[in-house]
């Protein structure tokens, strides 16, 4: 990962996480809302290697964990997003792959993030996690993420590609 790529990732992820808590979460949307940080992370990690993806995801997760209001344990999102970044790196979008791959990635990884976050919570005895909230969060997050993905992911991927040397690596 180049320095420019790192800087771009940091700026994009910070912007996304601030907008998430000040704008998105302030909207009274039924069933949760889109996860901006997850979308930006998917965009960045889809054009990265698995290692870089995992590191990106871990950092993005820590940022979300530390973002006030910080009521849950630090590390939960880091754990979840680390895996998300790693998986995106394995999928590895290059220009020859169909855009449908990234749509599928958004749907599956949004669902994965919600499930993994709840699973980690259950593991550590978080009494807030109930079946009803889980189901509404799961459907809500996946739908909102899919709706918002076309406006976020192509832009993020294009920006990220620009910061990388023009040699194609497979």
């Amino acid at each position: 990962m180049t320095f420019t790529r790192g800087l771009l990732s940091a700026v994009l992820l910070l912007t996304a996480s601030v907008l998430q808590v000040t704008v998105v979460n302030a909207l009274p949307l039924p069933g949760g809302g889109p996860d901006l940080v997850l979308l930006v992370l998917i965009g960045l990690a889809l054009v990265s290697e698995p290692t870089a993806g995992a590191v990106l995801g871990f950092s993005a997760g820590l940022l979300v964990d530390f973002m006030p209001p910080g009521v849950t344990e630090v590390g939960r999102w880091a754990l979840v997003f680390c895996l998300v970044g790693y998986i995106c790196g394995q999928i590895r979008m290059d220009s020859r792959r169909s855009p449908l791959v990234s749509v599928a990635a958004v749907a599956l990884l949004s669902a994965f993030a919600v499930i993994a976050f709840a699973a980690v919570g259950l593991l550590f005895g978080d009494e807030r996690i109930t079946g009803q909230v889980f189901l509404s969060t799961l459907t809500g997050t996946v739908l909102y993420d899919l709706l918002l993905a076309p406006f976020v992911i192509p832009g993020v991927m294009a920006l990220a590609r620009k910061t990388e040397p023009a040699v194609s690596r497979v």
Binding site: E49, P50, T51, V55, E73, R76, A78, L79, Q90, F124
Partner: peptide, 27 residues
């Protein structure tokens, strides 16, 4: 897939540290 061994080590380290954070923070 290049570098899978290194990748797996990095992933394991990151997951382990996230887990440690949660454990420390939870108790």
């Amino acid at each position: 897939m290049r570098d899978t061994r290194r990748t797996r080590i990095v992933l394991a380290v990151l997951l382990l540290s996230a887990f440690t954070f949660i454990t420390i923070d939870a108790r």
